[in-house]
């Protein structure tokens, strides 16, 4: 049997509050091939997703490393979205 690959999605800080979720597992649709396309795909879920993911300065990380929006996705990665960091 061919198991579908699934992506591990994670949300932090204000984003997690706004979306009311911290993580989920997602089987990537075939047409979604980059981090930007994944963001656009998630925005289709509704107004709160669109508002949360279109905030200025949003970061995306793949395998726990901040990446550019055109970074390709294969569908089995850990992908995180989060607002600008405020530690220290």
């Amino acid at each position: 049997m061919n198991m579908p690959k699934s992506l591990s999605l994670r949300f932090f800080a204000r984003l997690r509050d706004d979306l009311n979720t911290s993580e989920e597992s997602l089987v990537l649709p075939e047409q979604v091939t980059t981090v930007e396309e994944l963001k656009q795909y998630l925005c289709l879920r509704g107004d709160n997703w669109q508002a949360a993911l279109n905030t200025p300065g949003l970061f995306a990380a793949v395998e726990q490393k901040v990446v550019d929006w055109d970074t390709p996705l294969e569908g089995h990665e850990e992908v995180a979205f989060f607002p600008p960091v405020t530690g220290g």
Binding site: F12, A61, V66, F82, V85, T86, G87, G88
Partner: peptide
């Protein structure tokens, strides 16, 4: 410190 504040994923 400068890079910790702008790159390390902490949120207050």
């Amino acid at each position: 410190m400068d890079f910790l504040k702008t790159q390390a994923p902490f949120w207050k």
